[in-house]
């Protein structure tokens, strides 16, 4: 940014007739070209398959129009997975950000070990999600003397009970990514001016009031980012579900991502799978746009 401002002010100083906005696109061009080649082109050329019946291998394919989208509407399993996807997303977004905020407030306090604690809470984020799922499968052992059950004195069938499995996966995801939300909230907290707290204290505000009327409003940008990232992450959750339950027991933890994976690589219906992927992508884009529009509206500056 500094480069750009410097460039603009110099352009203005030398009196060249360059509109203030034009150069920025030129600077972006190299990146845009790479982005177009590596992301846009493959994505668009892949989208074409959503309108075919390609099996994923061989040359045999024909154009089927919107038939795949019609199939999707009548596909009980895919429709059921939308419900799971939304439940999982809501749970993950609420709990992950709640826990992340509490952790951030905790390690933002003047503790001796706060550096160490920050590292510990962030550590799970850098582990591969598949590894995390495999580790948690051991913790989710239904044996009353092993894993979480042994630790907490419970007898829960974590991944085997269809009414519990989805929440077990949500718990696992929250455990892994709460540290990620924490880091973003921490960055937000660093940006809250100390003077405001001092002023609030002089006005006689207690801990809760300082949080409610100073910290919380000024954290709004961090809240926007966290909610959006965790919503996107939740809607397209795949690795953890795939590794932990593969959609089971029955279809109890099937998400849109696992359904589209199975259609492509297990059932050999690449065309249909691409159609589901397309719908998922549009859905995620729509949700995030609405979310950002709404959340941006409530952001304030100090």
């Amino acid at each position: 940014m500094t480069v750009l401002t410097a460039f603009r002010s110099r352009a203005r100083a030398t009196g060249r007739r360059v509109s203030a906005d034009t150069p920025s696109w030129l600077f972006a061009a190299p990146a845009l070209v790479v982005y177009a080649l590596v992301v846009l082109y493959p994505a668009v050329s892949g989208m074409v398959y959503a309108f075919t019946d390609w099996s994923g291998i061989g040359e045999d394919r024909s154009f089927v129009g919107l038939a795949n989208f019609g199939t999707l509407l009548g596909d009980e399993q895919a429709m059921g997975s939308i419900g799971n996807t939304i439940l999982l997303t809501v749970a993950v977004v609420a709990v992950q950000n709640g826990v992340g905020l509490l952790l951030a407030l905790g390690v933002n306090a003047k503790l001796k070990s706060r550096g160490l604690l920050r590292v510990i809470f962030f550590a799970p984020v850098v582990v591969s999600p598949v590894m995390v799922a495999f580790l948690w499968k051991y913790l989710f052992n239904p044996d009353p003397s092993a894993g979480l059950n042994g630790l907490l004195g419970l007898e829960v069938d974590w991944l085997g009970d269809p009414s519990v499995a989805l929440w077990s996966i949500a718990g696992m995801v929250v455990w892994q990514y709460a540290g990620y939300s924490m880091v973003i909230f921490l960055a937000g907290l660093e940006g809250v001016p100390k003077e405001l707290y001092e002023a609030a204290m002089i006005d006689g505000a207690g801990t809760w009031q300082r949080f409610r009327y100073v910290t919380w409003p000024l954290l709004a940008p961090a809240v926007t980012i966290n909610l959006m990232l965790s919503t996107i992450g939740g809607l397209k959750l795949f690795d953890q579900v795939f590794a932990a339950t593969n959609g089971g027991p029955g279809y109890a933890t099937e998400t849109l991502s696992t359904v589209l994976y199975k259609q492509a690589f297990v059932f050999g219906k690449f065309g249909y799978s691409t159609a589901i992927a397309l719908v998922l992508a549009l859905f995620v884009a729509a949700v995030s746009l609405v979310q950002v529009y709404y959340l941006r509206g409530r952001e304030v500056t100090a």
Partner: peptide
Amino acid sequence: NAEVQPVHFAVIQELLAGDA
């Protein structure tokens, strides 16, 4: 086709869970 086998897996899990 490749769909029968995964359905077999899923319905057995549902039967064991008493859900079907």
